[in-house]
Design a protein around this nucleic acid. Sequence first.
RNA 1: GGAGAGGUGGCAGAGUGGUCUAUUGCGGCGGUCUUGAAAACCGCUUCGGCGGUAACGCCGACGGGGGUUCGAAUCCCUCCCUCUCCGCCA
Length: 433
Amino acid sequence: MLDIKLIRERPDYVRERLALRGAGDEILIGKILQVDEVRRAALAQVEALKATRNRVSKEIGALMAQKKLEEAEARKTETRELGDQIALLERQVGESESGREELMLRLPNLPDDAVPRGKTAEDNPVVRTHGSQPVYCFKPASHVELCERLKLVDFARAAKLSGSGFLLYTHWGARLERALIQFLLDLHVDEHGYTEVSPPLMVGEHCLVGVGQFPKFKDQYYGVAEGDNPQALGKLYLIPTAETPVANIHREEILKDSQLPVNYCAYTPCFRGEAGAAGVGTRGMIRVHQFDKVELIKIVKPEQADVEHEKMLANAERVLQLLGLHYRVIMLCTGDMGFASVKTYDIEVWAPGQASYLEVSSVSNCGDFQARRMNLRFKTESGENKFPHVLNGSGTALARLFVALLETHQQADGSVSIPLPLQPYLKTDSIRP
RNA sequence: GGAGAGGUGGCAGAGUGGUCUAUUGCGGCGGUCUUGAAAACCGCUUCGGCGGUAACGCCGACGGGGGUUCGAAUCCCUCCCUCUCCGCCA
């Protein structure tokens, strides 16, 4: 959520920054200012009336204590309708407040100055490239072929269980997935200094609102029902990313200055409806309804945000470096950034079987946007309460990492060699047919 | 799921319709005293909003929401959560 004071004081600046996203959200600013004005006018009135009521009520109390009952009764009838007026105005305040809130929750974050202007993914500049595209003396197979040949994933049976977009890992495939999870967690916890957490996989609506997934993108997530009670449907949602529960851990708290930065790392499955995405990358493991991911979350002081953002990006890149994968880092342009973000880097790993780069990580600085939505604050040394900045990054998404790993390290004999750092986890140096 | 007990400030814990501000204790911060510290004593110690250049003034919040009343932490309704016991269960 944006700061209402910023909208009041610099509406044109806000409109201009929002326009850079190209979604037309800037037209909401006028409405917000209008509703805000109504709210403030009604609030000033209601507070004046309440001040009067408080004063008179105290006088009545004093009169009754002195046993001047008739006088007290007279004052009561005098002020009887005050309550009705207050109730009426309070309804106005409430309505304009929730109206303002509703609009505010639909406004995306403002892009940072450092973010390149652009409209689509075509406009995202490459920040750097690591390694180069490997060359093979044979035609590299796609992961679908490799998975079938090596019996790592049973696509057909997964579909039998849950429909398309689900994976059934088998044999070495299941072990590889588990090894990767363990490898990633150990790397971030032991070497990068994150604290591991393992959150609930179902969360209440307020958590999705907190990170900015609701109310605007409600159609993309799975709601769950308990038993056959239709009323329970939508009370809980399957998490689309560990960011949702983990970023909300300290919601409605006031953290101590000394607690920051908070660094969390979590492995969770992620569930996404991907409505409307049918046909796009549906074959194989590239776009699925359930996948595993290790997520990094930081809660930092505003002045630490840029440095911590770069550190998080480096932490995610380290994963691909250790696994011997070629990748590039791109910065998302103003038109391609996520709703809550002020600045986002994507890491795209090379998948030789696809002959394309796959997004395996998105590392975002969300500024104070999520902290406002969650009412998460910290107390500065001078005793002031401020909103911290919240960062999140994948470290990394698993299904696509799995794809890149198989396709990159496939051998002429049909086997897949396992990079050295992963061998202790998988307890083998190669997977053979 | 059933029965009972609870939810008040950082923590503990009073407060069953009104006297000026939600007692009090602990912890924390500042001060006095001291070479320094402890003790003692004094003071301060939640969050949000509105108005004002400011000093300051006002409004709201006692788990959430609604109601009764001139006036609600207190009475009523409703929802949520915690604890104890029972049932079911990996």
